[in-house]
Design a protein around this nucleic acid. Structure first.
Length: 282
DNA sequence: CACCATGTTCCTTG
DNA sequence: CCAAGGAACATGGT
């Protein structure tokens, strides 16, 4: 669930639910997802803290809290590939892969992650390494063009570099290149100014539309069942077919391109799948 | 059994 | 030293 749009929708969902809530107790079920590595120290700092703000930066959730002695705390959450966060009643069963549980005054905040690739950390250093927000003012045409000019890497894996632009992942990288009609194999520095401009606009449009889509789906962040509200692969269980059409190329190898009918292809770049239309994207 | 999976970090290769 | 690519991480779905 974890590219920028999914994290943004989650942040909006959690914001009103967490504001003002106090952490009574912290249970670290999987020590490896927590930093500092000592789960006891992590728990001790957060115990008694109160949530003040929930924000997003790239693929990170940023929780601002006030510690029990008044200190400002910043908790970063990264969902890895399979992480989820939701609130549940204290009487509900914990999900199988619960990694960290924050017990609140009423109910609890659960971070679960089947593969445990995600992280919760009190160390904010990761944010300093991120590039500009793609939907923010720092992601200018000039910045993007100059940043791409410095790399001979293929443009698709280049888009996954969080220091170039923060929040684009494997799904939306393919989608943005499709929308901009640029081949994923093109070298970054060989894109023309016009192509850089198209790609920048495509990145923004694809992310913006995904957020808009996610925000209109009634979200139910339950840990079990199919309709858990996160628009994974563009499919929300039990919703009309139009939602399944949301992604133009991702995971559609062999299916006809919606524009020209050519079969969509899958290729592997830097050990990740890329999907594209060989006719439309040159 | 084989292969694939929304991400990041670390190691190797050139 | 640098850039780029691949494996590792851990679990589940098809």
């Amino acid at each position: 669930m974890p590219e920028l749009p999914e994290v943004e929708v989650l942040a909006r969902h959690l914001r009103p639910l967490l504001a003002g809530q106090r952490i009574r107790r912290v249970d670290v079920c999987r020590a490896k997802v927590v930093r500092p590595q000592c789960g006891a120290a992590f728990a001790a700092v957060l115990r008694g803290a109160r949530f003040e703000r929930v924000a997003r930066r790239g693929k990170y959730l940023v929780f601002s809290l006030r510690g029990r002695r008044g200190a400002r705390l910043r908790l970063l959450g990264h969902l890895g590939m399979t992480g989820r966060m939701h609130l549940q009643a204290a009487t509900e069963p914990l999900p199988r892969h619960a990694a960290v549980v924050l017990r609140l005054d009423h109910g609890r905040f659960v971070y679960e992650d089947t593969r445990y690739f995600g992280r919760l950390t009190l160390d904010g250093a990761a944010l300093a390494r991120l590039g500009p927000e793609p939907l923010g003012p720092g992601f200018t045409a000039r910045y993007f063009e100059q940043a791409l000019r410095r790399s001979g890497q293929a443009i698709k894996p280049r888009l996954l570099d969080q220091a170039l632009v923060a929040g684009v992942g494997n799904i939306y990288a393919s989608e943005a290149l499709c929308r901009a009609r640029i081949s994923p194999r093109r070298r970054a520095r060989q894109l023309t100014a016009a192509e850089c401009g198209r790609l920048r606009r495509a990145v923004r449009a694809v992310l913006w539309e995904a957020i808009a889509f996610g925000s209109t789906v009634p979200l139910r962040f339950s840990s079990r069942g199919v309709a858990d509200g996160l628009f994974y692969y563009g499919r929300a269980a039990g919703t009309p077919d139009s939602y399944t059409e949301r992604l133009r190329v991702y995971a559609r190898a062999g299916q006809p391109c919606g524009r020209c009918g050519t079969r969509i292809r899958r290729l592997v770049q830097a050990a990740r799948s890329t999907y594209y239309c060989p006719q439309c994207q040159r």
